[in-house]
């Protein structure tokens, strides 16, 4: 069986303690949460950290609550809890859409939202979900906390705004009235990473789309935030033609690579189709018309 290289291990008992450990141990230290991205890389010896700081005891980072007009999700909240949260499903149903198709139920028992976002794999679903939902994230270091938008969070492929001695501690989703959202994914098989996936959110205002969020997974080096399509939608009445136009923009604005999941043209096609589908469903939900 594949086995990781040797490392030293410590368990954090507080967020600040974890940050202090990271500062002390330097660049060869990594935080381990659910471990379902990091450990497979370590077994393949693609990641060889010298120190692991285990933050699984930080149960204070496991929560989904409504506070100050936001849904706030602790970084250690596991996929299974995101899937089951009625509060989250009520305000942001795209989380439940995504969580039914992220990996498999057993993996979802371990993997965390913080781990998923910090891995920053462009094929990962939650990054697109959070971008579409206009989330921001709270990053804490020894110097204190800062709040970063998803656009600011995604620095590059597998790279985020979280510094070497920082920890992502919370995801914040602003709750606005008359919203609806949906996530659509095409995968080769249940549990696989996306060939392409699209997250969409709309907030209705007087019969038109007041604001929209659209983001794509697996069709670029990072999560693709389709701002041009969001602009198109703002202030317009929802219609299939409008969504088709938004889908066309999504197809154009993504930059997929050809791989075992499919060629570029297929992925562009999917970006368009899934954007349309997600928008249609998001709008139906916002209007309480979902079939």
């Amino acid at each position: 069986m594949q086995t990781p290289a040797a490392f030293e291990y410590e368990r954090a008992t507080s967020v600040d303690g974890a940050i202090a450990s990271l500062e002390r141990l330097g660049s060869e230290a990594r935080v381990i949460a659910g471990g379902h991205s990091l450990l497979p890389m370590m077994k393949l010896r693609l990641a060889n950290p010298e120190h692991l700081v285990d933050i699984n005891d930080l149960t204070e980072l496991s929560y989904i609550r409504e506070q100050e007009g936001e849904i706030r999700i602790g970084a250690m909240t596991r996929h299974v809890d995101l899937l089951r949260s009625d509060l989250l499903a009520q305000h942001f149903p795209l989380f439940r859409d995504a969580e039914t198709v992220i990996a498999d139920p057993v993996v979802r028992n371990r993997g965390t939202i913080g781990g998923s976002l910090c891995q920053a794999d462009a094929a990962e679903d939650l990054s697109a979900v959070c971008a579409a939902a206009k989330a921001s994230v709270v990053i804490r270091g020894s110097g204190g906390e800062r709040v970063v938008s998803m656009d600011g969070f995604h620095v590059g492929p597998f790279t985020t705004a979280v510094g070497a001695a920082e920890i992502l501690i919370e995801v914040r989703l602003p709750v606005r009235p008359d919203g609806g959202s949906a996530h659509e994914k095409v995968e080769r098989r249940a549990g696989d990473w996306a060939i392409a996936a699209a997250s969409a959110a709309v907030w209705m205002q007087d019969g038109t789309i007041g604001d929209a969020g659209i983001a794509l997974s697996a069709v670029g080096l990072t999560t693709i935030h389709v701002t041009r399509a969001e602009e198109l939608l703002r202030g317009k009445a929802p219609s299939d033609e409008l969504f088709a136009e938004a889908g066309a923009i999504a197809s154009e604005d993504c930059s997929p690579a050809s791989d075992g999941r499919g060629p570029i043209d297929y992925k562009r096609h999917l970006a368009g189709v899934l954007t349309q589908r997600a928008l249609r469903r998001a709008t139906a939900r916002a209007l309480h018309q979902e079939a």
Partner: peptide
């Protein structure tokens, strides 16, 4: 529908784990 051992032009096997050699669930 999904099981395939494929190779790139250099002969690298592109389905060398169960992440890419897909077996039906």
């Amino acid at each position: 529908l999904m099981e395939l051992l494929s190779f790139d032009a250099e002969g690298n096997c592109l389905n060398s784990s169960f992440m890419d050699y897909l077996i039906p669930t």
